[in-house]
Simulated scan of single mutants.
Amino acid sequence: MEEMLLERGIVVSYETIRRWSLKFGAAFARSLRRKAARPDDLWHLDEVRIAIRGKPHWL
Score class of each variant (00 low, 15 high):
P39Q: 09
L32H: 02
A36V: 10
A27V: 05
I17H: 03
M4Q: 14
R34C: 00
E47D: 11
M4K: 14
R19N: 15
A26K: 14
R34F: 00
A29R: 04
K23Q: 15
P56A: 04
V12C: 12
G25A: 00
I52S: 09
R19L: 14
G25Y: 01
R30L: 01
V12A: 06
H44S: 12
A26D: 11
G9R: 03
D41M: 02
G25H: 02
V11N: 13
L22P: 03
S13D: 12
P56I: 05
R34H: 05
P56K: 02
W20L: 06
W43G: 02
V48A: 00
G9L: 00
P56F: 02
A37Y: 03
R33C: 05
S31A: 13
R34P: 01
R30F: 02
I52W: 03
A51S: 11
K55R: 15
D41C: 01
L42Y: 10
E7V: 04
A26T: 12
R30M: 03
R38N: 11
D46K: 01
R30N: 04
E47A: 14
W20G: 02
A27R: 10
S21R: 15
L42A: 14
E47M: 07
V48N: 02
P56V: 04
R8G: 02
P39Y: 06
E3M: 14
S21N: 15
L32Y: 07
K55M: 10
R49T: 09
D40F: 06
V11K: 04
R8C: 04
L32S: 00
W20E: 09
M1R: 08
H57S: 06
K23S: 15
L6S: 09
D46A: 10
H44L: 15
L22A: 14
E47Y: 09
R19Q: 15
K23W: 08
R53S: 13
E7H: 04
W58S: 13
I10M: 09
P39V: 06
I50W: 04
A27F: 06
A36M: 07
V11Y: 10
S13L: 09
G25W: 00
F24I: 03
R53P: 02
S31N: 10
T16Q: 08
G9S: 01
F28Q: 07
I50A: 05
S31P: 00
D46L: 12
R34A: 03
E7G: 07
H44T: 13
I10Q: 15
A51W: 07
I17M: 01
W43D: 03
W20Y: 06
K35Q: 15
V11H: 11
I10L: 10
R19V: 14
L22D: 14
R53M: 14
E15P: 02
E3A: 14
A37F: 06
H57E: 09
R8K: 10
R34M: 02
G25K: 03
Y14M: 14
A37K: 04
A26G: 11
V11W: 09
R30W: 01
D40K: 08
E2T: 13
R53N: 14
E15H: 13
G25T: 04
A26I: 06
R53D: 15
E47K: 05
A37P: 03
P39M: 09
V12T: 06
A36R: 12
F28L: 12
L22C: 09
G25V: 03
S13F: 08
G9Y: 07
